[in-house]
Design a protein around this nucleic acid. Structure first.
Length: 214
DNA sequence: ACATTAAGTGATT
DNA sequence: AATCACTTAATGT
């Protein structure tokens, strides 16, 4: 665990903080598709991702699920960070997208570290900021009723997390994550194919412009 | 060959 | 954009 922690966060956190993380945090290795947090669970720890990715799902007043965002290497969960302060309950559902390694940090340390470590403070704010920006653009797409854009972004995100432009997925699964119907997804997929943005076959979608990160 | 599941199509709201 | 009803295509047993 030490090596990976250093490898991923050596330049993010100061030495003392890294030491404290490795003593106080518990290392966990989780397989693909394992539920970690459900809605209503009390949050006791915040995760720090070392390897793999975690999908964060939200739910509206009905039982409609929607994929909010992914946690990847170097990420933590800003949702957890905020509602964690007072041991509140989760309003999100977390699920491993693939085999994942992470460190769980007890929430009590949150406040302490915010005061104690400059880099931790920066980290918290930074992950806040990036999530906020993501949310804003998501809302934008929703307001414009722009499912096509949402779908394309979804596919790109998924490819990013997988580190591969080729996704093994059905239209039905996509529809579920986007909280829409399969028929609509199929039609939008066909559009994207005609626009030469993707290729699609049964159980498979390939992103054509796959440029690993900006 | 048959059943099951994924994906395509047209019409309707 | 969602839903329905139906077709076609691919896959598994």
């Amino acid at each position: 665990m030490q090596e990976k922690l250093l490898e991923r966060y050596e330049y993010v956190f100061e030495k003392e903080l890294l030491d404290e993380i490795s003593t106080v945090g518990q290392f966990r290795k989780i397989n693909k598709d394992v539920p970690m947090i459900d809605i209503g669970d009390k949050l006791t720890h915040i995760p720090l991702i070392l390897e793999g990715a975690v999908r964060i799902m939200g739910e509206d007043d009905k039982e409609n699920e929607i994929l909010l965002y992914y946690l990847e290497i170097g990420d933590s969960c800003s949702m957890t960070m905020t509602c964690c302060m007072e041991g509140k309950k989760s309003n999100i559902r977390a699920l491993t997208e693939k085999d994942t390694e992470l460190i769980m940090i007890p929430i009590i340390k949150m406040e302490e570290w915010i005061i104690k470590y400059r880099t931790w403070r920066a980290f918290v704010f930074q992950s806040y900021d990036s999530r906020m920006k993501e949310m804003l653009s998501a809302i934008d797409a929703l307001a414009f009723h722009n499912l096509e854009e949402r779908l394309y972004k979804y596919l790109r995100d998924k490819a990013m997390v997988t580190h591969s432009p080729e996704l093994e997925i059905t239209h039905y699964q996509i529809a579920n994550d986007l909280n829409t119907s399969r028929v609509v997804v199929s039609r939008l997929i066909r559009k994207l194919v005609l626009d030469h943005k993707i290729e699609a076959n049964r159980n498979q979608v390939k992103i054509l412009e796959f440029l690993p990160k900006v």
